[in-house]
């Protein structure tokens, strides 16, 4: 069965770059699944997401979104299917949370149009889902990092997409918020969304289960069920570190931990 996203032999190189950031990448994103994308700093995880969002143009291979080559998809089409939660959102003006989330409905609004009552309703639903009612009239720029991310997730949900892309959602958060986010990802999955999440913490991939992908510095991607991809040898090859993977009885899951210093 074909996934929502099918990446086939995708290459990407920056116009001024010397190495391929993505080298013959093949990947599948399926409904109701979490795909964790791991890789060292600078490997190209964000670039991969940007290519999937058509923010960057791939230099080889093809990306199919719902069976259609992404070059033929207009921005609105993509946005109707794909939600995006970026790593950082520098916002110049103090929009309220409500307005911010409402912008997620842009894929449904006509040119020279305004959001309809339905759009507003969906936005409110997304806010309720994320439990953000009490701050919905606050200015986005005055929220904490964690709150901003939750608002961004609400915005992504508001569009009623089929897949949500997260770009390193936990990197700036404390442990408590990290856990919240990971729980939210799991819930989204259970609601039927496909989730793609880049992270540099292999333990998150183990926590979420389903599928994982490993992007190395040469731009090559290995993907498959998490247990197959997140192994000690593969991690060592990519991260050049002796990470240990053990099964933890109390939590009934595999965990990834640092070795002793």
């Amino acid at each position: 069965m074909n996934g929502i996203y099918e990446l086939q032999g995708v290459d990407f190189m920056y116009p001024s770059g010397r190495r391929k950031v993505l080298n013959d990448v093949t990947l599948s994103v399926r409904e109701g699944e979490v795909l964790s994308i791991l890789g060292p700093n600078g490997a190209g995880k964000s670039t991969l997401l940007n290519c999937m969002l058509k923010l960057l143009k791939i230099t080889g291979g093809r990306i199919l979104l719902r069976g259609k080559p992404i070059e033929q998809c207009r921005a609105k089409e993509i946005a109707a299917v794909v939600g995006y939660v970026p790593q950082s959102m520098p916002v110049a003006f103090p929009y309220t949370v409500e307005d911010f989330v409402l912008m997620g409905r842009a894929s449904r609004v006509s040119v020279m149009g305004k959001p309809t009552a339905l759009d507003r309703e969906k936005a409110q639903e997304a806010i309720a889902l994320m439990g953000l009612e009490r701050i919905k009239t606050a200015a986005f720029t005055e929220l904490s990092g964690g709150e901003q991310q939750q608002v961004a997730i609400a915005r992504a949900i508001a569009a009623e997409p089929q897949v949500i892309l997260f770009d390193e959602p936990t990197s700036h958060l404390d442990f408590g918020n990290q856990l919240k986010t990971l729980r939210m990802v799991k819930q989204l999955c259970e609601r039927g969304f496909a989730v793609v999440m880049t992270t540099h913490n292999p333990d998150h991939a183990l926590l979420l289960g389903h599928r994982a992908a490993l992007l190395d510095r040469e731009g090559r991607l290995t993907s498959g069920p998490t247990d197959e991809v997140v192994t000690e040898e593969k991690l060592k090859a990519v991260y050049e570190a002796d990470l240990k993977i053990r099964f933890m009885e109390e939590e009934k899951r595999r965990v990834c931990i640092y070795p002793a210093l």
């Binding site: 969002l53 921005a75 995006y84 970026p86 912008m103 997620g104 842009a106 040119v111 020279m112 305004k114």
Partner: peptide, 24 residues
């Protein structure tokens, strides 16, 4: 004035606006 809501979206930045579906 007709485009005013889209201007809000545009003011989020090119990448965000594009990912939201705006024809930037």
């Amino acid at each position: 004035t007709l485009n005013s809501w889209w201007l809000d979206v545009l003011s989020m930045g090119e990448n965000q606006a594009r990912s939201l579906g705006a024809n930037v």
